[in-house]
Amino acid sequence: MSSFWIILTGALVAVTCSLLGCYLILRRMAMVGDAISHAVLPGIVLAFLISGSRQTIPMLLGAGILGILTTFLIEFLHKKARLQEDASIGVTFTWLFALGVILISVFANKVDIDQECVLYGEIAYVPLNVWITDTGTNLGPQAIWIMGSILVLVLIMIFTSYKELLVTTFDPSYAAAIGFSTALWHYILMSMVSLATVASFESVGAILVVAFLIVPAATAYLLTDRFELMLVLAAVFGILSSVLGYLLASQIDGSIAGAMATMTGLIFVLAFIFSPRYGILRKKNEADKTGMIIEESKV
């Protein structure tokens, strides 16, 4: 049963992150996920100090607020200080992460966490942390409920606002011209990324979240020219990575989250080699292909 919970948690994290990742890579903001995953550290520490417990909800709240603050800071430095986007990401998250490290070291006697547990997480402990109601009913691991609800939120966002997200991603100036607020959709998306990152850190850890945010989406990008299909493929690769990752980890008796992230990379490499359109095997025939298109367009 516990391996089922672990795989399910991994799959929920993977699908949530892969779907969001599709938008991130097309907006050239892949590294924002990386930034958020580090920058939430002071939020987690502060939430711990204020609430005095390792309860999930205050942690999520503290980290979520910091995550959104991070995206604001990145935007602010980029727009107002005229810093390049990547430079403002670099300034923001290293600084916030360092702040978190200092907070931990200063309050070390009061704080029962360290940066390692935030950065690496431990998915193997997921089945141990179950949600038991006041009446004593066992509802299964907490992580499943938290990741499940965030996935539902992400799905609601994509289903109701598919066209808004699409047009603000593809052509922000046209979107603004027809009256869609690009800033609003940017922050909605970034809030979702913050939530997903923060909720995942307990299980797969902040660093491996980045693998799920970027790699399955990048794999899907190599394989399709249709955005809907890219979302579906990314989700499928996410699930596949967590199942295969778990099998690999139990074979070699290694880190489960590490094995899952390794699988995302392996699937990416396979796609890179065998992609029907962009794969390196295909590129040998590139000359024929362009010749074909020119002929087609003459028709």
Binding site: K163, V167, D171, F180, Y221
Partner: peptide, 22 residues
Amino acid sequence: SVDWDFPASALDVVLMGRYSQI
């Protein structure tokens, strides 16, 4: 001003012209 490698077809892009009416 846009990334033409975006996974969209010509029809997808033209359909965006209808978004404000929808």
